[in-house]
Simulated scan of single mutants.
Amino acid sequence: MGLPVSLRVDDPGVPASLGDAVFAWLREADERFSPFKPDSEVSRLGRGEIGRTEVSGDLAEVLGLCEEYRTATGGAFDAWLPGRAFDPCAVVKGWAVQRAAGLLTGAGVARFCLNAGGDVVVAGGPWRVGVRHPERADRLCQVLQVIDGAVATSARYERGDHIVDGRTGRPATGLLSVTVLAPTLTEADTTATAAYAMGEEGVAWAAARPGCEVYAVDAGRRVLRTPGLPVPV
């Protein structure tokens, strides 16, 4: 996935094989769904070598999520941008990591933190999750206290202006960063990216999504947050 992934499990007696299964699934997801790997199913679909009715059940699920968020954002979020290869990474990362978390909860693990490049799924908290400052890599701008759920941030500090507003075809510039807390990382990661693509209007859009809380910094460096954001007392 092009990012570091770490797993902390606090339950005693959890076999190492369960952690191995988590990382094996993430490696499989990277091989199957990366648009940067020529032989992946995503790349083959993007080149037209297979049709949308011929994809695996997993990729069909990803395609459904891509369409759901494209519709919900009026086209601001779009994995099929004109002139670009099909790129569902904004959906796949959160979706794949959430499925990995499901391996843990399905095995009865009650307390863990799965961190994929700063986007996290936690269970059995409270866990303190830091939100990176959008302009200072050595600073946090907020700390969240999460019991069970997921936190994801979209910003330009790692990959520059890589998030495009599908309505204009130009890089989104209305926000410096947007962080979303949601029940799953599928929702948190995709909602954060979609909101960033929408610009400042995306903050209210994300806040209206069921179960979502939002912390954002706009281009004018104003902090925008929802009242239910869980912060340590």
Rank of each mutant, 00 (worst) to 15 (best):
A16M: 06
V223D: 08
G220Q: 15
A116L: 00
G94S: 04
G19H: 07
A152C: 02
A16Q: 07
V178S: 03
A76M: 11
R221H: 13
G160C: 11
G118S: 05
A216F: 08
A60Y: 03
S40F: 03
F77I: 07
E135F: 12
L229E: 03
L26K: 01
G220I: 05
R70H: 14
K93A: 00
L3Y: 12
W127H: 09
R70F: 13
G64A: 13
E49A: 13
E41T: 06
R221S: 14
E31N: 12
T73C: 08
A110L: 10
W25T: 04
L144Y: 01
F23H: 02
G125V: 05
E201V: 13
L59A: 10
V217Y: 04
A216G: 09
V146F: 03
P134R: 02
P126C: 01
W205H: 08
V214W: 02
R70P: 09
V42E: 12
F77C: 06
G202F: 11
G102K: 00
T186P: 03
T73W: 11
T193L: 12
P4R: 03
R167E: 09
S43I: 09
E135R: 14
T193G: 10
A172P: 11
M198L: 15
G75I: 06
A194D: 12
F23R: 01
C113H: 11
G75A: 11
R70Y: 12
F36P: 09
R136N: 08
T168V: 11
A194H: 10
V214H: 03
D165Q: 07
E158L: 12
D87L: 06
I50S: 10
K93V: 00
G220P: 10
K93R: 02
F86K: 11
R225H: 10
V129Q: 01
T184P: 00
V178C: 05
L185S: 01
D161R: 14
P183K: 01
E54P: 07
A188F: 00
W25E: 12
Y157F: 15
E68A: 15
Q145W: 04
A24E: 14
V143T: 15
V22T: 06
W25I: 04
V121C: 05
A96G: 01
L175Y: 02
F77A: 09
A204K: 07
L229T: 03
V14P: 09
T153W: 04
T190R: 08
G51L: 05
A24H: 08
P232A: 02
T191I: 14
Y69F: 15
D218H: 06
V143H: 06
V14S: 04
V5N: 04
E31I: 06
A107M: 11
A60K: 14
E213V: 12
R52S: 09
D165L: 08
V233S: 13
M198W: 13
V217K: 05
G102C: 02
A152V: 00
P35R: 14
D161G: 05
R225L: 15
P230G: 10
G124T: 07
C141A: 13
P4A: 03
A206S: 12
T190W: 10
G166N: 04
L81P: 04
V223H: 11
T105S: 15
E31L: 13
L114Y: 00
V121S: 00
Y215L: 14
W95G: 08
M1R: 12
L81H: 08
G199K: 09
V231M: 15
R209V: 13
G102P: 02
V121D: 01
R128V: 06
V223L: 08
W80S: 13
G57T: 11
